[in-house]
């Protein structure tokens, strides 16, 4: 079952179509990594799904309930979200912020439960410090603790790693994996830190200029990520001649002068042919495309 499903979802601001017929599927119990450049439409889709923004056309469903159905409001009680910035009352303490949210959520947590949540995000010692005196990272962590208050089945996190230090990022990563694996919480997460996303996401959605380019599972992605061979040589022109002679079509010259070969090639044959042309191989390594490479390769096809 998909907890979030969008159907030809569109959003227009003035004349600009910022979300363009998006059909997105967030499977239950997945960590859905939402990848896209700034202004690609990630946050807008999250806002649309959370009912903050009205779609221009198309629709979506949450837990199978269509957005026009009145039951959508009840279903949203199982959802929590941090969209862009943490929504906190700066003049109140962490505890008061939690009580305030409990009241409008219609839940009641004990002091121990509140403490437990704060401990989860390493804010157990904030005492009566007002939120306005928190650092950006502390606010982000408090927002995450508060997002867990209603024991959600689905969490939408828009750039949750913003403002966190490396240690905080690692802790958040562990927390999200734990929530997903132990408590079965489905997580839709967007982040610019693709290397971090790569460590937790089980499904990816790539978006650019308001268009969802591809949805792919983590396993599929790793199968598709192209393997490449990088060479550093002393004579680039002669090396290119050798590559042409060997019939290699898929290669590119990197900005630092390295040659990146995507075609399958016998390394022995390649080195021998280069040597015949007096091209010295200074460095050679094989690598696999990262999520970032894959995404950049994907958007090149669109732009």
């Amino acid at each position: 079952m998909n907890l979030i499903e969008t159907n030809e979802l569109c959003k227009k601001y003035s004349k600009a179509l910022v979300i363009n017929h998006v059909n997105m599927h967030v499977p239950e119990k997945s960590i859905y990594g939402f990848v896209g450049e700034n202004g690609s439409g990630k946050t807008t889709i999250m806002r649309l799904v959370m009912g903050l923004v009205e779609p221009t056309s198309g629709g979506f469903s949450l837990f199978g309930i269509p957005n026009r159905d009145r039951r959508i409001h009840d279903v949203k009680r199982q959802v929590s979200a941090i969209v862009e910035t943490a929504s906190l009352v700066p003049s109140m303490t962490a505890r008061d912020n939690m009580i305030y949210q409990e009241l409008y959520l219609g839940i009641k947590l004990s002091d121990d439960e509140r403490k437990e949540l704060l401990t989860k995000v390493h804010l157990e010692n904030v005492g009566k410090k007002k939120v306005k005196n928190f650092s950006l990272g502390m606010r982000q962590r408090l927002a995450i603790a508060m997002a867990l208050m209603n024991k959600p089945k689905l969490m939408l996190l828009d750039e949750p790693m913003n403002g966190l230090d490396p240690e905080g990022i690692a802790e958040l990563r562990e927390l999200l994996i734990e929530l997903n694996q132990n408590e079965g919480i489905t997580i839709l997460i967007s982040s610019h830190i693709l290397s971090e996303l790569e460590k937790i996401a089980t499904t990816y959605g790539f978006i650019s200029h308001g268009q969802l380019l591809e949805e792919i599972t983590s396993d599929e992605l790793h199968n598709r990520c192209r393997k490449s061979l990088s060479l550093a040589v002393n004579d680039l022109d002669n090396a290119k001649e050798v590559l042409e002679k060997l019939g290699l079509k898929e290669y590119s010259i990197m900005p630092n002068g390295d040659i990146k070969i995507y075609d399958n090639v016998s390394i022995t044959k390649l080195v021998v042919e280069l040597s015949k042309k007096n091209v010295e191989v200074l460095n050679m390594r094989s690598s696999e495309e990262s999520v970032e490479d894959y995404y950049l390769h994907l958007i090149k096809g669109v732009m």
Binding site: V75, V79, S80, T85, A86, S87, L88, Q101, Y104
Partner: peptide
């Protein structure tokens, strides 16, 4: 501006 309205909509309150 503090996002209280946003949070309340997210938590299922109708506009």
């Amino acid at each position: 501006t503090q996002g209280s309205i946003r949070n309340k909509i997210i938590s299922g309150h109708s506009k």
